[in-house]
Amino acid sequence: MSSPTTLSGTELAAELNTASAVRAAALPFTPTLATVLVGDDPGSAKYVQMKQRRCAQYGLRSRHIHLPPDTTTAELVVALTDLGRDPEVQGILLQHPLPPQIDERAAFDAIPLRKDVDGTSSAAFAAAALGQPGHRSCTPAGIVRLLDHYGAELAGADVVIVGRSAILGKPLAAMLTARDATVTVCHSRTASLAAHTSRADILIAAAGRPGLITTDMIRPGAVVVDAGFTPGDVVPDAAEVASAITPVPGGVGPMTVAMLLSQTVDAAEAVVGTR
């Protein structure tokens, strides 16, 4: 079998980020993304810093709000509400996961839809499900953009998503259904996971379980998207049977950040009525 196509998120993200920089420079003000971090989790802090660096690299401004680990839901909601009312801020990112005492849904829903550039609020999910205007959840949006870029046919495709999180699996299912794909969402209670994955034209692994998807679970010639971290949800040998596959790292990750920047510029353009 010939080598599979590499679905490079790094290359496409660079193009999108350059386009975001051009769009940002054309505005009468610098688009500003507010990042909110609760607690001192090193991994979350690293992700926030990386997003701030990308903002600076591509002509956006970032403002960081760091709250202590014992912050209450009410205190976080106040901080997010204040940012929602601040005319100098066009986008808000609440870094997740949050400490256990926080009601995540209440926190995400405190972000106004117009500024929810990470697409995590209930309103953003409803907009995606109903095909209405609104910012899409960044990782799912990045996956769809990547599939489009490499010519994957979504209409009529049998798509299997492994993982049903509120920020990835569920909104991605809504987006792909809107594109006329036939979507199956699998999860930890799915019986005979391989029976579902092995029939997929497009298989998207988003369970956060390294090595969950083995080669024998993939239909020969399928398009495989691994949304896991390093190591990924899909074993490296999957490249032997897939027709196209995302690398880990360098696949979905760069696309998530690129969509965040792009949607922040979208929000800024909406302020001045250029969208």
Rank of each mutant, 00 (worst) to 15 (best):
R136Y: 06
D40Y: 00
D237M: 09
A205N: 00
S122V: 08
I213G: 00
R53I: 07
T32N: 13
G43M: 11
S44D: 14
R145M: 03
R164L: 11
V78R: 09
A181V: 07
S188A: 01
G43V: 11
S2L: 13
T30C: 13
L67E: 02
F229H: 15
P68H: 11
P87D: 08
C55R: 11
T274W: 09
A191P: 13
S44H: 08
V38W: 04
G9W: 02
D86A: 01
L83C: 07
A191E: 15
V89M: 11
L37Y: 01
D40W: 02
S122I: 00
Q132I: 02
P133Y: 11
V257S: 11
R275C: 13
E88I: 06
Y47K: 05
D109G: 00
A45Y: 07
V77G: 10
R179I: 05
S243E: 08
T10R: 15
V22E: 14
V248D: 00
R179S: 04
A126R: 15
E269S: 02
A110S: 09
T18A: 15
L93V: 11
R85E: 15
L147E: 02
T177M: 10
A123Y: 09
M175C: 05
A191N: 13
A106R: 04
P140T: 03
L83A: 04
V36P: 15
T246A: 01
S188H: 05
S243I: 03
T182P: 07
G119T: 10
C138R: 00
L260M: 11
I245A: 06
D266G: 08
H64A: 13
F229E: 15
T10D: 15
Q263D: 09
A14P: 10
N17Y: 02
F108D: 05
R136F: 08
P4Q: 11
A222G: 07
G250P: 07
A25N: 12
P171M: 01
A141H: 05
A13N: 07
H64T: 14
A124H: 09
G91M: 02
P133R: 12
G169R: 03
D41I: 01
A205C: 02
G163H: 00
S44F: 08
L260T: 08
A242Q: 01
D237P: 12
V257M: 03
T6L: 13
L261E: 10
A239L: 06
T184V: 06
L16V: 12
R189I: 03
E11R: 09
C138K: 03
A173N: 04
T5C: 03
P42L: 10
T30S: 10
S20P: 12
V252Y: 02
A239Y: 00
V183S: 02
A174D: 04
V162N: 09
R199V: 08
G208N: 06
G134Q: 09
A74T: 12
D40R: 08
V144D: 01
L27S: 05
